[in-house]
Each structure stands twice: as C-alpha cells, then as structure tokens.
C-alpha cells in the first residue's frame, strides 16, 4: 500500500463523514474535507505519529463561481509537507458564499498560515474565525472588493479614475 493510500485510510477511519472526496491526478493526492472539521483534521495530520505533517507549504483560495449547480463557490487549498516522510498532501475545504464565507483559522497550528490566511481574506473575502490579526495584507485597507474573485474585473472598478484615493482625513470628515 502506498503512503498516500495509508494516509487517506487513516483519515477515513478517524473522520468518516468528514472526508468528502479523494482525488488523484498526476500522482498528487487531494482530499476534500468538511470545513467544520478542518481544525480537528489538521491537528490530527500534524500530531499523529505516522503522519507528522509539520509544515504548511501553501494555503490559497480558489473561486469556482462558474461551477453550475449547488456546489460551494470557494475552495481553500492547504498544501502540507511532512519533513520526516518527505511527503506532500493536499487538503481542500469548500466554503459556501451563502454561509458568510467563513471557516476556522489554522494559524495557531502552523504559524505560516497567519499571513497566507490574510492573503486569502484580502483576495477572496473569506473570513478565518479566531485569526489573531485578520487585515488586508497586499492591498490598501480602503480597497473595495476582492480581486481574485472571478466576478471582479481584471482592470478594476476604478479604471477610469485610477488615482482618486481618498485621504483618511476626508473620510473622517
């Protein structure tokens, strides 16, 4: 049994319904999980003896707005790596727009998630509950909209007047 199968089996044993889908493409395994159990699953993946995913390589959002039907609009993708087993695993959590676009933070599990979650918040407007400092990170605080959403125009909303930035004093009256 390959390492990937082993990991997936372990997850299924412990989380049953929490594991929604397992896919493999070009040798990369992606596991879609229930977003309400994301913290339990991540802690399990980090701390279980034979898993030990101690490194969060990447965390990003994807907007599937064009997906037909009642599928969730957003997906948060976590890419984990185990230093001990030199092994990668991709975990995905679906986030519905109707449910206020939120899920739990993992920034206390891996500190790397701190800024990465801020970036997802900045670009997709997804809120991470209990994040210590959820602010925009690349765009200015006054920026309107979330650019990596598919319905955000590439040229922006202020294409005609790109330099009309309002000063803080003006905003406060």
């Amino acid at each position: 049994m390959s390492r990937a199968d082993e990991v997936v089996n372990k997850l299924k044993e412990n989380f049953h319904d929490g594991i929604i889908k397992v896919e493999e493409f070009r040798g990369e395994v992606s596991v879609t999980v229930d977003k309400n159990k994301i913290r339990d699953i991540m802690l399990f993946l980090r701390d279980t003896d034979k898993l030990l995913y101690d490194m969060l390589t990447d965390l990003c959002g994807v907007d599937y707005q064009c997906n037909a039907g009642d599928a969730a609009r957003f997906e948060i993708v976590y890419l984990l790596r185990s230093s001990k087993f030199n092994d990668r695993l991709r975990i995905k959590a679906r986030v519905r727009e109707e449910e206020d676009c939120q899920l739990s933070t993992v920034s206390d599990i891996w500190r790397a998630a701190d800024w990465l979650e801020r970036e997802v918040y900045d670009m997709f407007g997804i809120k991470f509950n209990n994040h210590p400092d959820l602010r925009r990170i690349l765009l200015v605080d006054e920026f309107v909209g979330h650019p990596l959403r598919k319905d955000f125009p590439t040229e922006g909303y202020d294409f005609a007047e790109p330099f009309s930035v309002q000063l803080e004093e003006e905003l406060n009256g």
Binding site: F25, R26, E28, T57, D58, C60, V62, V77, L79
Partner: peptide
C-alpha cells in the same frame, strides 16, 4: 486538472499551483 510543481529558487521553495 490541477498540479503543484516547485523548484528550489535562491530564496527558497518557489511553487506554482496551476488549475
């Protein structure tokens, strides 16, 4: 499909996750 590929850039692990 979707893949992740990375290289060791001078700064560290530079990865591209392309869908």
């Amino acid at each position: 499909g979707e893949v992740y590929a990375s290289v060791e850039s001078p700064k560290g692990e530079l990865g591209f996750y392309v869908i």
